[in-house]
């Protein structure tokens, strides 16, 4: 279930502003979409490799420097596209599940 949806959620979180890995994890954990953090790092790297994300280093007083992720131009366009698909899907699900069987 999470496959694909997780990617979409990450893009969605980043469309509201830049974030570093721990922020994204907190958000996803809050929504109970992931249980363990480890799943996220391969995803982020993959999205970055697909040129959907970019990152910059920022110093942190809590430890090593942090990677702050931001949407690339491509990523922004893709996020909007996915949003459309998602809404269609959502409508379809709504329609199907609300009609009495």
């Amino acid at each position: 279930m999470r496959k694909g949806v997780l990617e979409y959620c990450i893009l969605g979180i980043l469309s509201n502003g830049d974030a570093y890995a721990s922020d994204i994890i907190e958000r996803l954990k809050g929504a109970e979409l992931i249980v363990v953090e480890g799943t996220l790092y391969p995803l982020l790297t993959r999205l970055k490799n697909a040129d959907l994300l970019e990152y910059r280093w920022e110093e942190s007083n809590a430890g090593p420097p942090r990677k702050y992720y931001t949407l690339s131009e491509q990523g922004r366009a893709f996020q909007l596209e996915l949003k459309g698909t998602w809404e269609n899907l959502n409508n379809a699900v709504e329609q199907l599940t609300s009609t009495p069987s």
Binding site: S22, T45, R46, G63, K67
Partner: peptide, 20 residues
């Protein structure tokens, strides 16, 4: 994984943060 080393570096950084 493709760019597995980079992912490992990210994970190590996160571990360092938590330990800290």
């Amino acid at each position: 994984e493709e760019s597995g080393e980079e992912i490992i570096a990210d994970i190590e950084a996160r571990i360092a943060e938590i330990f800290n």
